[in-house]
Amino acid sequence: MALERDKHTAQRALLTLHEAQLLELYRRMVLIRQFEEKTAEMYARGKITGFCHLYAGEEAVAVGAIYALYDKDYVVSTYREHGHCLAKGADPKVVMAELFGKVTGISKGRGGSMHLFDQDLRFMGGYAIVGGGLPIATGLGLSVQYNEGPEVVCCFFGDGALPQGAFHESLNMASLWKLPVVFVCENNFYGMGTLVQNAICQEELYRFAQPYKMPGVRVDGMDVLEVYGATMEAVARAREGDGPSLIEAVTYRFRGHSMSDPVEYRSKREERIWQERDPIKNLRRKLTVERHVAEGRLGEIEAEVARQIDDAVKFADESPEPSVEELGKGVYAGS
């Protein structure tokens, strides 16, 4: 359950963050939503192919958690990572170009939707093996500790990763060595089409923190301020050298597992209930009602993002494809 403390943290964030900060949270969520909607459209038009997993509905998790980080902090992600990459500051142009398979893409057209990466942004990659990012995040945490650096590693993964050995090994190792890692589990209730309760003996996922001797908290993943508040606490703990934390953000993906998923395993009623809890509408309501932000200001942000997305599509569309002659290069460093 969402703890009372986290509701308070969220309320405090709403009241204490500057308006510009709140609008930035709003902007980032709108950016991800519009990016994903445009991605679906481009997929339907055949501009994007292959596996493509959209993040619409889960924006509050990426945006809330990453807003609690400094630029130098690391993010490790999954194959549903457009949102994390954009929230970490990637230019939508190079992300869209990657989805289009273009040489101007963030991974030069070699990665695709599931393998975005930017060393400068410390966005350390989308990994498409469930649970694969957790050991890598643990190792990045080890490198920070080794260098006595101030950075923190924020590692996103889905509920589907919990039964993987990599999850348990990584939490054990990170806790054993007090590594500065914040493990953020995006519980969207389904590992592909399998309900959490059909896959995991303990469906209150944050409780897996306890055997690994770290704080575990379940937050409302549809509330960006709640995610932000919980991550701030976990990040502070990690930065102090007190070790990792596990955050379970309860969320919902508005679309299927991937673009090829007709979503026959869940009811329309369930989907409607969660759409009512849309994280963007949620923040919009709070901003207009409790912080008296003018509707028009939010509309301006949306229009500005829409222009940015249009530019991204144009850039991606007009960019060249990678050359076939170069494809054998870069299998090894320096080759």
């Binding site: 694969g132 957790l134 080890l142 490198s143 260098n147 990599a166 990584s170």
Partner: peptide, 11 residues
Amino acid sequence: GAGVGAAMGGL
């Protein structure tokens, strides 16, 4: 995996 991550972190 932690070795891979540590290597990506500059070690």
